[in-house]
Write a protein that binds this DNA or RNA. Structure first.
Lengths: 336, 336
DNA sequence: TTGTAAGCGTTATCAT
DNA sequence: ATGATAACGCTTACAA
């Protein structure tokens, strides 16, 4: 693809390239008529300034890179949209990449984005342990980075978090308050910091009510995983009074499996999910779930990043912890 | 952010910049020891080549831009992942942007991506009528573009489509074959080509069975829209035997509203959706829906694009039409 | 095998 | 108000 360049226009009009450049950058002195003439012929010749060249000399792209583990579920897309809304207002474009839950891909995404000279990065990491050296390196080079939702503990930069501990606690309490004692928690793998926080919330709720520490089973993100765990429990004859799952999908899987085996929800087993997926209110029975303010999370991350950018890389690390809500639905309360 | 540059290394090692450059580009003659030395100090100094500069001189980025209307639902994300899988194999990175169903945003996305010197574009358009001149312009400049799912009729480039006509026909036939005569089609707005194709499929199925041409109502994409239309029908006392909706969400909305008013599905009204959303198999009753091969669509688009790129911009327009499947579930068949 | 220098498309400083 | 020109970081003839 052959771009029309500033030179083509300069030649065409017998002016210098700097004059043409000025026509496109309001801040310089230029006679209005010359400017209009240039802008006009630019349109004729199908010219628009080449941002690559501009980036090279200005060392600034007005692009923000964003990396998320996946966007199959609506969780991350909603956050992306939240971030976009504030970034767009400030004339930044957002380039999105997904790591597919893979740390290596995440690293290569980051490199691509940095290669494109993004002015900042907003990242939700895949694994707590990997890639931190690279991010560390970027931060040392004064590249603004904000992490959200899944964040590396060691890195000293801004983060936007959800109060996983608190809401796992509340969700568990919601079940305990109904007189239930035998609750199982389906936890996410331990390399995710929020998984640990939720486990802690779950256990501390038990402590508060002087109950024996609840049982925890590690479980994946999918419906199938939830089904697998439930089948396992059924096989072992180990039927709990309630299940608090770290994700809606596994919670739905659990419900499916138990229903298939003739158990009634919520009569026989109560179920609570986490993250308020689109499915939650539409499954049968509707699933109680902790909803996280995805749009706010995106907005907060974007604002922290803009702050860093405008601070010329002087990073004042800030951590914002966002509140949630427990959407109580039929799956977790006995209908009277 | 201060990048370490090729010059820093050159100075550090008392060699010329071209030697350093060569160390990073295998194809040139360079003494292995010099190369290793350079690569080593590069690592020490935290240097990696600046792709922006490289792009500027090579006029090639190994980045592909992809624009989708939204990624809140899993439809487009799945296509993106399909495309990514083949593009990654060929060392291309994919930059994704979303137009939010807005033609202007779509245009600005395209400009950003072109500005980043992507080597090709994969687009699902928001509106058939807008932005075509710009895309036309890009194509004339030999920028490879492949459209998918929602494509502009006028543009002479490669496209990947779903056979909307055929599957709307089959879906309708599936209802007619059960002896139903009074079927209403919830159609998408007419500025989307596939909306028209589905309407035609719906009507032609009626023709085949010598039935009066079925009724069509224009409806949005959301659950709420489906509910609104259903409420309207109920208010008018106009209860059909079946509803064939152009989208799963509106179909689900329809079911919700009818259920709320005491109608039974499928006993009183049968419902068929389109696009096989994640929700389809989990709502109550499970929703019959036409599933589209999203992964294949992404892969096909990517392959067509790579073809164009490797053809050095000599575009041989191709249109691939993909097949689907009707997933029959409880919402559309009377249980015996 | 290595160095020199031109060029990619801009912006920005310094003259004029 | 406009023009020359260096610079951004890199690749690539061409020369040595």
């Amino acid at each position: 693809m052959k771009h029309t360049t500033i030179k083509d226009i300069a030649k065409h009009l017998n002016v210098s390239v700097s004059t043409v450049s000025r026509a496109f950058n309001d801040k310089y002195d230029i006679r209005p008529e010359t400017r209009d003439l240039i802008l006009e012929t630019a349109k004729e010749l199908g010219y628009s300034p080449n941002p690559i060249a501009r980036k090279l000399v200005q060392q600034k792209s007005f692009n923000i890179g964003m990396i998320v583990p996946e966007f199959e579920n609506s969780f991350f897309p909603q956050i992306i949209m939240g971030a976009q809304s504030v970034l767009h207002e400030h004339n930044y474009q957002v380039l999105v990449m997904q790591s597919n839950e893979d740390a290596e891909t995440e690293l290569s995404n980051a490199r691509t984005l940095v290669g494109n000279m993004v002015d900042g990065l907003i990242i939700s990491i895949t694994s707590e342990d990997q890639n931190v050296e690279y991010y560390q390196e970027l931060l040392q080079k004064k590249l603004p980075i904000v992490f959200f939702n899944r964040v590396p503990a060691e890195l000293n930069t801004s983060k936007v978090l959800f109060d996983d501990y608190k809401w796992a606690f509340f969700a568990t309490e919601h079940l305990i308050n109904q007189g239930l004692k035998n609750i199982i928690h389906l936890a996410y793998p331990h390399n995710l910091s929020f998984a640990k926080d939720r486990i802690k919330g779950f256990k501390d709720a038990h402590k508060k009510y002087k109950l024996p520490e609840g049982k925890t089973i590690t479980c994946g993100f999918t419906i199938e995983e939830g089904e697998r765990i439930a089948e396992q429990l059924i096989n072992n004859g180990e039927i709990p009074e309630a299940i608090f799952s770290s994700g809606d999908y596994s919670a739905i899987g659990v419900m499916k499996a138990f229903k298939r085996h003739g158990y009634k929800i919520p009569e026989d087993i109560r179920v609570v999910g986490f993250s308020e997926s689109q499915l939650a209110q539409h499954v049968d029975p509707p699933l109680t779930s902790v909803s996280q303010p995805t749009d706010l999370m995106g907005q907060a991350a974007a604002e922290l990043l803009l702050g860093q950018i405008n601070n010329k890389g002087i990073i004042v690390p800030q951590t914002i912890v966002l509140n949630g809500r427990l959407n109580v639905r039929e799956s977790s309360v006995k209908v009277i």
